[in-house]
Structure formats: structure tokens, C-alpha cells
């Protein structure tokens, strides 16, 4: 049996949804799925991880209660060596971007982030390069293999298994002169864009910061995240963390709604893998109108309030049903 490690992430104490697609992608004949939980609620996650075929859960204690990616990565790398786990899959998420490269560097292992496809036997992946303009097939060589998966590329399917929990306490950490002193959150509770199923983004057409409220109002009724184009960020209407594109967040939602966004090459670099793109723009010649699934030529200030009403009504009828 080949042990495939899954780096599990939590959100408010619950296993992130995107981990289940990851587990689904990792399953296969002669494979043993090992969930690696670093400083997280491993026992609480047992049932839900079992539902997706996990056979072993490693409860890793890095020796630090708060977020410390250097220490956690060292602990995960040590657990992989101790338990002879050669392959590790994690998410290309905020903590994945911190942990996976640190783990790979420690193990001297190859790493590809943002994989859209992983062949665990051949150690071969596909990922986008050159701002999404090309797809590269990359072969990994080494004694360990680390993969960062793009969220939502494989739909989650259940396949129940029974999992044992193993405790792994890490005490071999050498201080490297790195210390997280504090973590500040602005309380926005931002739903991380890269893992969102639905994103509604605004651009130049929104005209000013206050008008983003129109997007947030729609987003609320469909559990969507709100994104923005570079123009909106550069104008100071919304924070950089909301920027979708080449130099912003790369997203992979089921539905991407581009409102008042012309659709530059750089913007497409961040959202072109969306399963469905819906564009609303006054300019029928905007680039995005030719490269989307649905487009509406019209005034967003008229359409968004109507959309909010229609979404609210749809939500109510669903709740009643």
C-alpha cells in the first residue's frame, strides 16, 4: 500500500470542503489515505474524514498552539518521514502557500502548486503557466512529492472507510529565528476567494467604493464571495486582497460574475478556469463579452438591484421548500 498524505485544513473548527475533493482525487487502488492534521481538532474531524475514504488520521502536535507555519511545516515533514508517507497533497490556499513550500524545502522535495490534475503513480501533474495562457505537464522526481491542488477541480465523492488516529508529537524543532508575534484579522470574515463556489466581481463600471455594496447585497443571498478587478483596487475602492487576476488571487469557482469589468488579459489570468462566466457590461465590445458563457449588455446600476431582489426571492422560496 502506498500512503498518500492529505494536509487537512479547518475553517471554524470544521474540515474545509475543498479537502473532500482532494481526498476524492487521491483515492485509488493500493492507496492508503492518511490525513495529516497539524495542531487541529483531529478527533472532531474523524467521522467526516472517514466518509471520504481516509484510513488514518495523524494528529500532529507541533508544540505551538498558535499559527506558526515554520514549526508546523517542520512537524509535518517529520511526520511524513517517520510514517513513510512519500506523497503529500494540500490546497493552494493561504495556509497551503505557507506550509507546502516549507515542507518541500525541508524535504528537498519537488512541489507543484495549483495543480489541476495529479497523477500520483507517474508523479506527473498539470498546472497553468504564463498567466493561464498555457497548461504545462510537469514530471516530478525525488524521494518525496508535494502537490498543491487548486480547489474545486475534482468534485467530492464519498467512499466510507474506517480511520485510526495516531498521535505524533514533534519535539525536534530548532529555532530558526522566525516567530509569529501576532495575527491580526480585520473582522471582515472574508470568505477566501480561491475556494469560493460563486464569485461576483466588480470593476471600473462600479465607479466608486460605496457601489460595491450592490455586489455584497447580491452575494449575501447566494453565499458568494465578492472580488474586484485591478482598476477597482488601484482606485482604492476595495482592498487588494479582493483582487482577482494575474497579480491578485487566482480563482476557480463554479460561477464567476463579472460586473463592469472589461476583461483584460491579466484579469482573465485569474478567473479563466471558472466553470461558468456571466458578464454584465454597458459596452458590448468589452473583451469579456466575447469570452464568457452569458452576457448582458446593460446598466449594472439597474440590473444589480433587480438581481438582488430575484436572488432574495429564490432564497426565500428555497427556505420555504
Amino acid at each position: 500500500m502506498n500512503s498518500i498524505g492529505l494536509l487537512i485544513e479547518f475553517n471554524d473548527g470544521r474540515v474545509k470542503e475543498a479537502n473532500f475533493g482532494m481526498a476524492t482525487a487521491a483515492r485509488g487502488e493500493n492507496r492508503n489515505l492518511v490525513a495529516l492534521v497539524a495542531d487541529g481538532p483531529a478527533e472532531d474531524a474523524q467521522a467526516v474524514l472517514e466518509a471520504y475514504g481516509v484510513a488514518r488520521i495523524v494528529n500532529i502536535r507541533s508544540g505551538n498552539r498558535s499559527w506558526d507555519p515554520a514549526r508546523q511545516a517542520a512537524a509535518v515533514a517529520a511526520a511524513m518521514q517517520k510514517l513513510e508517507i512519500d506523497s503529500l497533497i494540500g490546497l493552494t490556499s493561504p495556509s497551503g502557500r505557507e506550509l507546502l513550500p516549507r515542507i518541500a524545502a525541508r524535504l528537498g522535495a519537488p512541489l507543484i502548486m495549483d495543480c489541476i490534475d495529479i497523477d500520483l503513480e507517474a508523479h506527473r501533474v498539470r498546472t497553468s503557466q504564463y498567466s493561464g495562457k498555457t497548461i504545462a505537464t510537469i514530471a516530478l522526481t525525488g524521494s518525496h512529492f508535494i502537490y498543491g491542488m487548486r480547489a474545486n477541480v475534482v468534485p467530492a465523492l464519498k467512499e466510507p472507510a474506517e480511520a485510526e488516529i495516531i498521535d505524533f508529537s514533534f519535539d525536534g524543532y530548532q529555532d530558526t529565528g522566525y516567530e509569529v508575534i501576532e495575527t491580526r484579522t480585520d473582522g471582515s470574515g472574508a470568505h477566501y476567494l480561491a475556494e469560493a463556489d460563486i464569485i461576483i466581481s466588480g470593476g471600473r463600471g462600479l465607479k466608486r467604493a460605496e457601489n460595491f455594496k450592490l455586489l455584497f447585497d447580491c452575494a449575501r443571498h447566494m453565499n458568494a464571495s465578492v472580488g474586484a478587478s485591478r482598476v477597482a483596487v488601484d482606485n482604492g475602492w476595495v482592498p487588494y486582497a479582493m483582487q482577482v487576476g494575474q497579480t491578485g488571487v487566482k480563482v476557480n469557482p463554479k460561477v464567476y460574475m463579472a460586473v463592469g469589468i472589461s476583461g483584460s488579459v491579466q484579469h482573465f489570468a485569474g478567473m479563466k478556469t471558472a466553470r461558468m462566466i456571466i458578464a454584465i457590461n454597458t459596452d458590448e465590445n468589452a473583451a469579456i463579452m466575447a469570452n464568457c458563457d452569458y452576457f448582458a449588455v446593460g446598466d449594472l446600476f439597474e440590473i444589480l438591484p433587480e438581481l438582488e431582489k430575484a436572488l432574495a426571492a429564490a432564497k426565500r422560496s428555497k427556505e420555504v421548500a
Binding site: 519537488p110 503557466q129 497548461i135 522526481t141 479563466k272 462566466i277 463579452m289 448582458a296 449588455v297 433587480e306
Partner: peptide, 27 residues
């Protein structure tokens, strides 16, 4: 250890845009 590109292909874009028309409420 290493990472070697075996193949690079252009990303295919094959969307067929369909128009949503009518009043704002229709759209």
C-alpha cells in the same frame, strides 16, 4: 529532485457567449 516540463500546450478557451436580453428585471 527536480521538476521538469514535459509538455506545454496553449490553454484552450472555448466559450460560446449567449446574450441575456430584455429589461433589467428580465435579465
Amino acid at each position: 529532485a527536480g521538476m521538469q516540463i514535459q509538455e506545454l500546450v496553449p490553454a484552450v478557451e472555448q466559450r460560446t457567449p449567449r446574450a441575456l436580453t430584455g429589461s433589467a428585471a428580465d435579465i
